[in-house]
Write a protein that binds this DNA or RNA. Structure first.
Lengths: 243, 243
DNA sequence: TGCAGAAATTGGTTGGACCATTGAACCACT
DNA sequence: AGTGGTTCAATGGTCCAACCAATTTCTGCA
């Protein structure tokens, strides 16, 4: 199956290995979840050392393109194409308040634009899906008497997906880890995110009414309430002087 | 909900190496440009194989934190702290028209928000810097009778930088490569980007007037002109049936 | 047939060797 | 003194061969 892995000859080995591998993945039409050749096999076919193969794979692993499972193999985690765009974002001091506010500003930018696009482009099916997530969220809100981060997240994801631009979801998903970290430890603010609840419904209403500017405005309001909560949380932290 | 239970890592040498290195960098107060210990020394001090050190450094290199120069050493490229947030983002797709439009929508989201933040937060020094870039751009426009992508880019970069949020610049910088690719081959549209020229000045004016909403609106207009140019270009392509 | 244990597979790590590039020290010639 | 080339040690890049650890697959017994 692996006869189309030509030997490497130029220097810049590891880069060449990645290029060859990308070509291989495309030729074999490998998708996410599928297993790719063994390190030893790659080394042999490409006529490079296994160490070089490992460095190349380490790069891809760092980019989240690939997952290695000891004893099992190396698996594709995302679609891979020769002309991919890599953007390693690094935010210093990930745990502090400023870092979270920074990501929140990105989220405000993307969320408002996505809501606007959604109002223009979402089809009936997407609209129904968003409303379904909204219902689930509201139900969880009633049952547990508070915001549920999971259902909340799914609602926003549905909006991003219906925007018709996959980049929105990809970027936000990459930053989700940071949001989530704080959602679980709401800085001592009781009912964190509570204030943002009603805006989910209003955002949906503006989208369903095909009103881009209204949707954008409601999204901005929602993020504003989250920002307020965070600022209150930061104030609390300062007062109680935790850590 | 079970995100708080990360899988235990029986083996995580390279990760431990990175943690140790991050601690070392902090303790020694190393900044960008400075040289860090050689691989051999690190291997000896940390009691791990040099290969393991190399894998760890390969990760950092992939994140753009470090630069390796053969025969010279390994140098810090960015500030490094033990609790950094990394968001490796790889965006699929690229060369086709739809991909470019998708990135442009991201740019619209970020550019408008950055302009608004800039109007709120930019200090006098940043404001002066933006105006300087603007003057350079307008001069280039007069001299060469057309848009100059380099000066144009520097203007936008200055705005992003003055937004006070490093993520804006990082995300856009990563996508710049994609914009640039098309700038160089303007799809057969003569005077590509020409229409966007006046909005640079109006954006600056709104920022200088501390008018966030105005700045946001002008930024939206600028992107809209670029989108129009692209659509015209795509239509041209279709007519002449290139490739 | 079912399942526990052995064997093969595969990524992770090690140590040692050599190559290619860099940069500084050195030297000869002008 | 200065210029240009040479030497040489330091450093990252690659390779090899072995072994470790986790996983999967096979095997043989109950």
């Amino acid at each position: 199956m692996t006869d189309l892995l030509p030997p490497i000859q130029t220097t810049a080995r590891d880069d060449a290995v990645l290029k060859a591998l990308a070509g291989f993945v495309r030729q074999e039409a490998l998708g996410p979840g599928e297993k790719l050749p063994t390190e030893r096999i790659l080394a042999e076919r490409l006529k490079v050392s296994r160490n070089t193969v490992r460095e190349a794979l380490t790069r891809w692993e760092g980019l989240g393109l690939v997952e290695r499972r000891q004893g099992s193999g190396t698996y594709l985690k995302a679609a891979v194409s020769p002309d991919m765009l890599h953007m390693p974002l690094t935010l210093a001091g990930g745990n502090d308040f400023a870092g979270l506010m920074a990501t929140l500003e990105i989220r405000r930018a993307l969320e408002s634009e996505a809501a606007a696009l959604c109002a223009i482009r979402a089809g009936e099916a997407e609209l129904a899906e968003i409303e379904r997530k909204l219902d689930l969220m509201e139900e969880a809100f009633q049952t547990r008497a508070g915001m549920s981060s999971d259902e909340d997240w799914e609602f926003h994801q549905a909006v991003f997906r219906a925007s018709g631009n996959p980049l929105f979801e990809q970027i936000i998903a990459a930053m989700y880890e940071m949001f989530h970290r704080f959602w679980e430890h709401p800085l001592g603010v009781r009912d964190f995110g509570h204030a943002s609840f009603p805006y989910h419904r209003t955002i949906f209403n503006r989208i369903a009414a095909r009103d881009p500017d209204g949707a954008r405005a409601e999204a901005l309001k929602l993020i504003a309430t989250v920002e307020d909560d965070l600022k209150r949380g930061a104030a609390n932290l300062k007062l109680s002087d935790r850590r």
